[in-house]
Amino acid sequence: MSDYNFAYLDEQTKRMIRRAILKGLAIPGYQVPFASREMPMPYGWGTGGVQVSAAVLTPDDTFKVIDQGADDTTNAVSIRRFFEKTAGVAVTEATAEASVIQTRHRIPEEVLRADQILVYQVPIPEPLRFLEPSEVETRKMHSLEEYGLMHVKLYEDISQHGAIATSYAYPVKVEGRYVMDPSPIPKFDNPKLEMAAIQLFGAGREQRIYAVPPYAKVVSLDFEDFPFEASKADHACDLCGAEDSYLDELIVDDAGGRLFMCSDTDYCSTRRKAGHVGAQGVPLGEDAA
């Protein structure tokens, strides 16, 4: 790939993205418009995250990509290969070894450190979009801190269902000012949004970058009598026995039998390597086909 610049993007594009990242960090939760480029992968497939990663990576980095918490999902493989080729970075599946992690739909279970950067792929950055389709209107609402519409939506959920009917992409308020879409992570992950690592959010098609600096205050919207609740399947991981991780539910036989396993594949295999065994698991290594 010597025909292409380091990390694919040209320097002027990287500078433009870098300036947007700095403003994003300076105004936590505010969506900074940026002139997203056409990338060699489709819009909606992580082009925002890819552009942010390209602007952030150095050749010294160790890069990890997850989709649904897993390193081996096809789109994660594809993005990881892209940066292996274009930036020559080392890659890893181990969360602890990664300096930059690009993710779609999950925050790793392992607590991230101050020297790590988490880059989110964001499909629709505007938390108010499904309540108000017009960008002109939602921009006005953010400027006036007019979040009543969101309030009403959550309130209506409660009167109809007895609970807030949002289970992922659950809106948060950052530093008491901007309501922000944390990307479609399950609300189980919301409490982790207050972390030591730098969090960068890239939405390529919608041309927005936003950020949450380390330790910034991130509060999931809720009501005094209906407090936010991070939820997961009421099971332990059937492979590693973890009771604190977000679980995928698999249908394993024609009778509809279920199996629950960690969505974070690195977390699960690290536990299994350490000898933890779940109800349907075996110690790691014995299942190598």
């Binding site: 380091f6 990287k14 952030v56 730098i198 600096p213 380390p214």
Partner: peptide, 19 residues
């Protein structure tokens, strides 16, 4: 080496802006 030097410099600048 602009792409590499700029990448390193930006990371430092980003880290100080973030912290």
């Amino acid at each position: 080496d602009a792409p590499i030097d700029a990448a390193h410099a930006f990371r430092r600048i980003m880290q100080v802006m973030a912290q």
